[in-house]
Amino acid sequence: MMHRLRYIYQMRLNFEEPVREHHFKLRCFPSSDERQKIFNEHIKIYPVHFSNAEKDSFGNLCIYGTANQMHDHFAVNVDGEAEINSEGKVPAALNKIGMFKYETNLTRAGNSIREFHRSFEPMNYMTGYERAIYMMNELYEEFLYTPGITGILTSAEEAFTLRRGVCQDYAHILLALCRLERIPCRYTAGMIPGEGATHAWTEIFDAGAWRAIDPTHNRECDDTYIKISSGRDAQDCAINQGVFYGGGRQTQEVKVIVHEILPQS
C-alpha cells in the first residue's frame, strides 16, 4: 500500500541589519508528476510586495517576487501531503536530455575523480542505469558522510579530494562519474522522513524515464522520497536566489519535517 506523507518546509533568513528591495526567487515547492502526487499544499512567504509563480526550464515550480519594505527577516513556510509511487516513471524525451550528459562547474571531474573512475572495471555490457548503480556502490565505499566540512559551493572534485561531505557532495560526485561516461543524469533536491534539512539525490535516465537513486544511502529511492526540484547540479536547484540592499551578516535556518500519515482505521 502506498504511503502518504505529510511535509513541512520552513526557511528563515535573519538579517543583522534591516534590508530593503529584496528580490527573491524560491524553488522549494514540491509539485505533482508521474511519481508523486501533492495534496493540500499551503505556501506562506513573508514579507511580500508582489509575487508570481512560474516553471523554470527544468520544470521546477518557482515563486519570484520582491519585498520592498524594510525587514529584518524573511520567511517561507510550505506544508502539504504527498503520495509517492516509486514505480512511477517521470518520462523524458531523448531530445531534452542532452544537457544532462555534460559536466557543469560543480560536477567537473578533476584528477582525483578521474583517477577514481579509472580504477573501475569497464563492464560495457551494463546499461547506463546499472553502471550508475555500480559507481554508486564504489563511491559509497570510498566516501565518508561528514557534515560541516563542505559547503553549498563545494565542487564534486573538491569534496572527493577530501573524501568527506554530505548528500549534495555524494550527488555531485556521482553525477561527475556518470557524465564521464555520458550517462544522462541529474541532481534532485527533496525531503525524506525525519526532522532536519533538505536531502539531495540523483536521477538516472533509463529507458525513456528518470529513475531516482540515493548515493548517500547507497540505495534506490523508495516511496518516502519527496522531490522538490531537479537540474544539472545543486545550483540549478537553488532553494533561494536573492539580492537585496543592506543586511550586514545574514543567517539562514532551514527546518524540514516529514512523517507518515497513518491510515485511519
Binding site: 523554470d56 531534452k96 542532452g98 544537457m99 559536466e103 537540474g231 544539472r232 540549478d236
Partner: peptide
C-alpha cells in the same frame, strides 16, 4: 552545444 559556455539551460 551543451558543453559550450554560450548555451544557457535557463533559456530552454
Amino acid at each position: 552545444i551543451y558543453s559550450g559556455t554560450g548555451w544557457l539551460a535557463q533559456c530552454a
